[in-house]
Design a protein around this nucleic acid. Structure first.
Length: 572
RNA sequence: GGGGCUGUAGCUCAAUUGGAUAGAGCAUCAGACUACGAAUCUGAGGGUUGUGGGUUCGAUUCCCGCCAGCCCCGCCA
């Protein structure tokens, strides 16, 4: 928060996907030889009454082939070895057989990745998220970058990408002059000995307030900063200690949220590279002097002006981010770097991506995933408004509420309450498109019904319970096949089949909400099936086939929630 | 002034990137527990997709103009 599109799918990604694509493409080629039909796609039907799958591409071809769309569709339909109907202006509606469905489900089960294609194999991406400021406690404003970034991280890993998750800490800058001064003057001995982030935050606030009213104090802060920047041993030691304590505190939060970083490279890491970046910008004629500062003028491109060196000689975020790209390219040579920050920083990222390209960093795809700000009960979150809720407190409150609900049902299990409480908070965020702003509200975030984390976890717990009752292994799918006869079975089966393409779509759009939405819809179909179809009481063969369907549902739900960083307790 | 984001049921949000009659949850109303777990399920009502044009077989989606809200625009990140 403090610190802060192209498609993810390359051509080889597209070659897999639903087997039906290839089949229908073939029919098109056969019907109209010599044309390229690689763009043809078969999608899940938008409504069961249109069959199971549909292809809309005959309509698109009408102009090119100079034929009425229905005629095209009919010619293709006649060549397809599937049950297919031409409807409306030229839709191809495809209905698959139970055998076909069972075959696909079996393949999915047999695959270690549940059918999720490993299109990221051998491809490296850096994902830059969370990035809180050192010496401050994390608050609810940090949730989105952390939770969305972490989910994107997991989703890319699931697709086989080699991901480097980097936490770009705000660990350098003027605030450390204020902090060091505050540490020396505003804390007592015991506070200095048992230094915590809370204490750091306190002394920062006190010191910053004094700097505001006293020029002397301000000057001293500045002097401490200069000493730090010049490598003064004592100040450097303090700085290091502040950082270590901060990271320790952040990791306590990350442990609760199930977030894990590969590297913690703050701005200090890139600080030594700043002069080099600036001189290169000057050499290339990209930067020029203006009002004492060094700027890159992008106003011709509608991007305003970016300052790369301040009039006091210091550097700021644009320079730091450029240095960061240089460093990442040299060390990792990733094909992509993904930044997850709030949408106020959009201009900055456009500027900095633009400059990076001009500096020659064109081999790496730079992607900004902006998310809408979180407000609190209709008001922007700010220290002044006094509505800054600490992340720690939020999570504790969530757990407390879940524990209360569990207690009512005679199951006051603290660890379980944590799984549900943390999951509820994460799901409340991830189920929304990142682009939309969220107004935080306790009741909404912690709701236990409807489209919520607990609903999904509950559905999973019921599958486990069912398997317990059946006395069967919850994971091991038997050879009996899958129930697909009834309408609710078939709809669930078709839904389960979508999982791989949903994971890919979530990655391509950088939207974990795509996956969340899918999981919720899947749970609704499962609950409906479960409520209306006896499983354990069915005769032996049907029972086994229904149990297999439940098992696969459970596996997919568990895997999907894991990608969102949400745990799946087997008993609630 | 320049730019970005947002606007869909009373409320909170979807809509597979241009497809068929715009879907869910909450709330409201009517049903289903001698239970494969009711944190569930079945059903009902609820819409001029901010607004006016345009593009075409077809627009919530793309283009232009307006309206409203939020945000950014040289020394914070």
């Amino acid at each position: 928060m403090e610190r802060r599109q192209p498609r993810a799918g390359s051509q080889e990604d597209q070659t897999r996907g639903l087997i039906l694509d290839a089949l229908v493409q073939q029919a098109f080629e056969q019907a109209f030889p010599g044309e390229d039909f690689s763009f043809v796609r078969v999608l899940p039907a938008t409504d069961p009454k249109f069959g199971d799958f549909q292809c809309n591409d005959a309509l698109k071809l009408a102009k090119k082939l100079k034929l009425p769309p229905r005629a095209i569709a009919e010619k293709v339909a006649a060549l397809l070895p599937l049950k297919v109907e031409v409807a409306g202006p030229g839709f191809l509606n495809i209905t698959v057989t139970g055998d076909w469905l069972e075959g696909r489900l079996s393949e999915m089960c047999a695959d270690a990745h549940l059918g999720v294609e490993q299109c990221g194999k051998g491809r490296k991406v850096v994902i830059d998220y969370s990035s809180p400021n050192a010496a401050k406690q994390m608050h609810i404003g940090h949730i989105r970058s952390t939770v969305i970034g972490s989910a994107i991280d997991r989703i890319f890993r699931a697709l086989g990408y080699d991901v480097i998750a980097d936490n770009h800490l705000g660990d350098w800058g003027t605030q450390f002059g204020i902090l060091i001064k505050g540490y020396r003057e505003c804390l007592n001995d015991s506070e200095r000995e048992n230094l915590t982030v809370a204490n750091l935050e306190k002394c920062y606030v006190l010191s910053a307030a004094k700097a505001k009213e006293s020029e002397d104090w301000k000057d001293e802060c500045r002097r401490e900063l200069v000493k730090l920047q010049q490598g003064d041993e004592e100040n450097l030691g303090l700085w290091k200690r502040f950082i270590d304590i901060s990271i320790g505190e952040f990791e306590r939060m990350y442990a609760k949220l199930g977030v894990k970083f590969d590297t913690y490279r703050g701005e200090s890491f890139y600080n030594p590279m700043m002069p080099g970046i600036v001189s290169r910008l000057e050499e290339m004629g990209l930067a020029k002097e203006s009002e004492g500062a060094l700027i890159v003028d992008l106003s011709d491109e509608g991007l305003g002006v970016a300052i790369v060196r301040k009039s006091d000689g210091g550097y700021n975020y644009t320079t730091s981010d450029l240095a960061c790209v240089k460093s990442r390219v040299e060390e990792y040579n990733p094909e992509r770097i993904i930044y997850v920050t709030d949408d106020r920083q959009q201009l900055h990222f456009k500027q900095f991506f633009n400059i990076a390209a001009k500096m020659g960093y064109t081999g790496v795809q730079l992607v900004h995933v902006p998310f809408g700000l979180m407000s609190y009960q209709g008001k922007a979150i700010s220290t002044r408004e006094g509505n800054l809720i600490k992340l720690d407190d939020l999570l504790a409150e969530s757990v407390k509420r879940c524990l209360a609900t569990l207690s009512e049902r005679g199951n006051a299990d603290e660890a379980l309450a944590e799984q549900i409480g943390y999951g509820a908070v994460k799901y409340a965020d991830l189920s929304h498109d990142p682009a939309t702003a969220i107004d935080f509200n306790w009741d909404k975030a912690l709701a236990l019904d409807g489209n919520s984390g607990p609903y999904l976890q509950y559905a999973y717990a019921r599958v486990c319970s069912l398997m317990d009752k059946a006395g069967e292994d919850p994971e091991a799918v038997s050879a009996a096949g899958f129930a697909t006869e009834s309408n609710s079975e078939k709809q669930l089966a078709l839904q389960l089949l979508k999982f791989p393409s949903v994971v890919r779509r979530a990655a391509e759009a950088y939207k974990p909400s795509v996956l969340a939405e899918y999981l919720y819809a899947t749970c609704q179909l499962y609950s409906s099936f479960y409520q209306n179809s006896p499983i354990l009481k069915s005769e032996a063969e049907l029972r086994s086939r229904r149990l297999n369907l439940c098992r696969l549902f459970g596996k997919i739900l568990k895997a999907g929630l894991a990608l969102l960083g949400i745990e799946t307790p087997s008993h609630i």
